[in-house]
Amino acid sequence: MREVAFIKQNKEKWLEFEQAIFGKIQKNPDELASLYIHLVNDLAFAQTYYPRSKTVTYLNHIASLTYQQIYRTKREDTNRLKHFFITEVPLIVYSYRKYILYAFIFFIIFVATGTLSAANDADFVRLILGDEYVNMTLENIRKGNPVAVYKSGSNWGSAIGITLNNLKVGLMSFVLGFTGGIGTVWSLFQNSIMLGAFQYFFYEQKVFWASVRGIWIHGAMEIFAMVIEAGAGLILGASILFPKTYSRTESLKRGFKDGLKIVLATMPFTVAAGLLEGFVTRYSPDMPIVLNLVIILGTLSAISWYFLIYPFQVNKKIMGLHE
């Protein structure tokens, strides 16, 4: 069957799914489950015969939303918070995975730009980080503790202040998606350029490894969450620029709601990063190297698994329901 004929044959059924998902028509759980079975069958057919088609992307997204709708009503799913983190957010991340990929591509390019700029311009680091910070860090390096700045302030004071600031930055990156994503990209550019210049500065001073041992204890989750939040901002921007089959207003509502859920899912990691920065990073120079690596690799693995691997596992589980 040609794809055009396939779409024409099933278009009304798919529209019925959309109306049920967005509450425009009422369906009880059994009816919705029945519709869902038909939908995943259509998705399997499309994946087989039109694997690179936009039809597959569309059906996969609708299937994910329908799955959420069904399982939200199940009796055993009374814990809304558990459902949010275990099922809802991973499905949303999977549906918008290309925007998460775009955010990582931008991040890598911008960090490389900051690194190369610092390597080729002796004044670039001071321009980006400021003379006061550079001079203070040079003094700390001279004293043998490159990351001594993290010892300033009390444990709780530092943790709370840093966490609130990072939460604000993440939300701002998302909200800037209202600019069509331009503001989000600019925010990511600024932070990534700073990171590239920052790390090159320590490399140039021959204390790169010491900086990694300290900074990335909290930075693994903090930076990763920043990129995911930028991805959420790109989702919001795309919902305005590319409404697809929806009205622009409906597309914006969907983009805002889904993007915000992704940002909310980064917050536990951001809070954990703030606690690590306030309570653990300051002791990094005195830690055994093995403990440094366990914390850094452990935190990076946790957030990477949740946002990059687990969504595919959840989606695969859903797709297996119709087999």
Rank of each mutant, 00 (worst) to 15 (best):
V134G: 03
V169R: 05
E12K: 15
Q19N: 14
S53H: 07
F256C: 03
L188G: 00
Y200G: 04
M136Q: 12
G259D: 01
Y99N: 04
V212W: 11
I240F: 11
I262A: 03
V185F: 00
L39Q: 07
N292K: 06
F22P: 09
G157E: 13
F45G: 02
L252V: 07
G278W: 04
K98H: 10
T245V: 10
E76S: 13
R126Q: 08
E132R: 09
V271F: 10
K74W: 14
V271R: 01
T87G: 04
K54R: 11
G183T: 02
G298F: 05
K151D: 13
R248Y: 07
Y36N: 09
G180S: 09
Y310T: 03
I7C: 06
N41L: 12
Y150I: 02
T270Q: 08
Y67S: 03
T184P: 04
Y67K: 06
S64Q: 07
E3K: 06
W186C: 05
A119C: 07
L297W: 15
I318P: 02
F224A: 00
G196H: 01
R80V: 15
M136G: 00
F107Y: 10
S95H: 04
H38T: 12
S301Y: 11
F22N: 09
W216S: 00
M194G: 00
R248V: 06
T184C: 06
T249E: 12
I228S: 01
G180Q: 06
K168W: 10
K13V: 09
R97A: 06
L32F: 12
Y96F: 14
V290L: 14
F110I: 03
T55H: 05
G183P: 01
S154K: 11
G130D: 07
S53I: 02
V212R: 04
F242I: 09
I70C: 06
Y102P: 00
V149E: 01
P268Q: 04
V314P: 03
Y96A: 05
G298P: 04
V147T: 14
L293R: 08
A273N: 04
S158V: 14
N315C: 03
R2F: 12
K151A: 12
P243A: 13
S34G: 14
G180D: 06
E250V: 07
E12I: 11
L129Y: 01
D42M: 12
T270S: 13
G170K: 06
K168V: 08
S152Y: 15
Y283I: 13
Y133S: 06
A265L: 08
Y203N: 07
Q9L: 14
E250T: 11
E76T: 11
I7V: 14
F224L: 06
L176F: 15
Y96S: 04
L321T: 12
Q19I: 07
A220C: 06
S34F: 11
